[in-house]
Amino acid sequence: MKKLVLTGAAGRLGSYLREPLTKLADTLVSTDLVEDIGKLYDGESYVKADLSKLDEMMAVLEGADMVVHFGAIGDEAPFDDILQSNIIGAYNVWEAAYQQGVRRVVYASSIHAVGMYPKTEFIGTDVPHRPDTFYGLAKCFAEDLGSLYWDKRQLESVCMRILSAAQVNNPRSLGSWLSYDDLIHLVETSINTPVTGFSIVYGVSNNDRAPVDNHKASFLGYRPKDNAEQFAEKVLAESEHLDPTDLTHMCQGGPFATVEIGNSGLANMNVVDDKKTT
């Protein structure tokens, strides 16, 4: 590819994607809301741009082959905040991609689009939406937007329903963990697969306790290697007995399944900010 665009490049997950994505295109344009993203990798440039402004997305995506869309509020928040960043922002990315002739949107969706399903159901990529928050609702919107733009405008998309790309430090993460290496592999396969149409795939590592089924997305070639079971003995020894009637422990969305709508879900999670520094 000549040009690849990464939104949300200043975020924790974006920090791990920047360098690998420079290997897939002549130019990687990283974008976010910060003034300066710091040291750039060879072949990378940075443009400050606001997802909620269509004209800025149009400018960033001009001449791009694909866009990897990770930019958004990464937590539950009041609806007006989610509306601007996660819903209008998604529309602006897909609409600008269509107008600029971009081939594919590779989108960071989330397990929270189906977060109210019990973990005991081992859900596939084709289950109906069942969001747990406004944040999850916005992911449902973006997935449906991707489906619409494929059906009506032939703009491909891969919606990666990421479970938890963070350190394994609680019982839920023994099933939901997505290692950074597997995250990179997932994004690369979503880019390199010759034809995707509109596709959904779960972003989860090869965990013994994974609560989701990816077999209908096998054509993408995503074959995760890491397994959270290596952390199980320590995590379980340090954990209190879990109440099986508590939706926090029973549902795919974890704490997002019980938090009051509009309030932070991450506030109830011990997510370590291990952002990569160049």
Rank of each mutant, 00 (worst) to 15 (best):
D132N: 10
V127Q: 04
L148Y: 15
V93L: 05
N92V: 09
Y91A: 06
D132L: 01
S147Q: 14
V127D: 05
A77D: 09
R130H: 14
I87K: 00
N86M: 10
G74S: 14
R130T: 01
Y98H: 14
T125W: 02
S85R: 05
T133Y: 02
V106A: 00
L137Q: 08
E121F: 10
V114A: 13
L155V: 00
Q154Y: 09
V114C: 06
P128T: 07
Y135S: 05
L145Q: 01
A72P: 03
F141C: 13
D75M: 14
D144I: 10
G115W: 02
T125L: 11
G124V: 07
T120C: 12
Y91I: 10
A142F: 13
Y149K: 06
W94Y: 15
L148N: 13
A72C: 10
N86K: 07
P118H: 08
H112C: 09
A96K: 08
G115D: 05
A96R: 08
L148S: 15
Y107C: 09
I111K: 00
R130K: 14
F122W: 13
G124S: 14
E121K: 14
Y135E: 01
S85Y: 07
P78G: 01
V114D: 02
G136Q: 00
A90H: 06
G74R: 13
A113M: 10
V93A: 08
P131H: 04
T133N: 08
I123G: 03
L83P: 07
D132F: 08
E156R: 13
S110V: 04
R103Q: 12
V105T: 01
S147P: 04
E143M: 13
T120E: 15
M116G: 05
I87N: 06
I87E: 04
P78E: 06
L145A: 11
Q99T: 11
I88R: 10
G115P: 02
V106W: 01
E156V: 11
C140T: 15
Q99D: 14
E76I: 00
Q84A: 13
K139S: 11
D81A: 15
H112V: 00
L137M: 14
L145E: 12
G71R: 04
P128F: 13
P118D: 15
W94V: 11
Y98A: 11
A97T: 10
N86H: 07
F70D: 02
P118V: 07
R130N: 15
V114F: 06
I123K: 05
S147V: 13
F134G: 02
G115L: 04
A138R: 05
A96C: 11
D126H: 13
A77W: 06
F134I: 02
P131K: 03
N86E: 03
A108C: 12
Y98R: 15
H129L: 11
V68N: 00
P128Y: 12
G74F: 11
L148R: 12
S109Q: 13
D80L: 12
V102P: 01
T133M: 12
L148W: 12
L137I: 04
P78R: 11
S109M: 04
V102H: 03
S109K: 00
T120G: 07
N92W: 08
G71C: 08
Y117W: 09
A138C: 09
